[in-house]
Amino acid sequence: MTGTVKLPLKEIEQMEHPLELFDRSKQYDPDLLADNLYPPLPFSGNMLIWGYRIISAAKENGLTELACKEITGKGPLQNLKTALKLENRRGKYSWEEKAKILEYLKNNNIGEKAVGLTAYIEEGSDTSWVKNAAIFRELSQPLREMIETGHIDFKTAALVRKFDDDIFLYIEKGKKLSFSQKRLLLTYFSEAVRRDKIDNSRTAELLKNILSSENPLKTVRELRFPKLSRMEKKYNALHSRYLLKSGIRITPPAYFEGDSFSVQFTFNSSKNLSEKIRKIQLIQEHIDEFLSFLR
């Protein structure tokens, strides 16, 4: 290992950049750079190991040279570790960056070591980033962009990755949905498509119909939970048949899970109370129809 040397910016830029893996959008602080406060850029032979953000900032600040330090005798994995240590953003790497890290490892035939890098990349010891970064690499460009711009989360994107890209355009152009509504809609939609084995050629049209319906979330819920939705509709019809405009509400347990119904009504006179009680007594004759929803 040698000491620090000043190298011309042009020379640094012309070096090989296989480790240019990190997001450059957040610039290195120009004030710190003006005061020469930055770590020396590590390089090995003709390869820059880390410091691309500093190079960008240096160019913008009109600097012509930067302090560098040559690292010798290290392999691709060690060089990556050095870059990750200097980057020092454990737990904050984007999927795009993680996918690039994985690609670098594969290009250097050290793919199986990815799990061992978890300590430099994630906060905990969860190694699932390796599997997920591989999934991310396979996503279409529009989906990757949607993740990076915060329009969709990775988990949902992974669920819907096999759909045509048109689908995502419909969602973006369709009714305004919040992030969580979008996630719910796509989750229900993809689960229903998978369960009902809906052909890929029909999914775009189906989603278009859902999004153009009056209440897309209600419509997609009916697709995902057909039995439950049918029960709810049937129950509402039954309720209307016997209790429409009666001022009495008989409510089943949530999701028809339980054994008790609740009855709710208000009254404002003795006569009014008698009417309500009479109505409830009439319902008693049909109570099996209500109870059948729970049995």
Partner: peptide
């Protein structure tokens, strides 16, 4: 992750676990 066993219709129960609809389970 995505597995067929989770694709049926499940509803939350009192213990916060998800089960098939009560009528179906019965």
């Amino acid at each position: 992750g995505v597995k067929d066993i989770f694709l049926e219709e499940f509803v939350p129960s009192k213990d916060k676990k998800y089960r098939y609809i009560q009528k179906t389970r019965t």
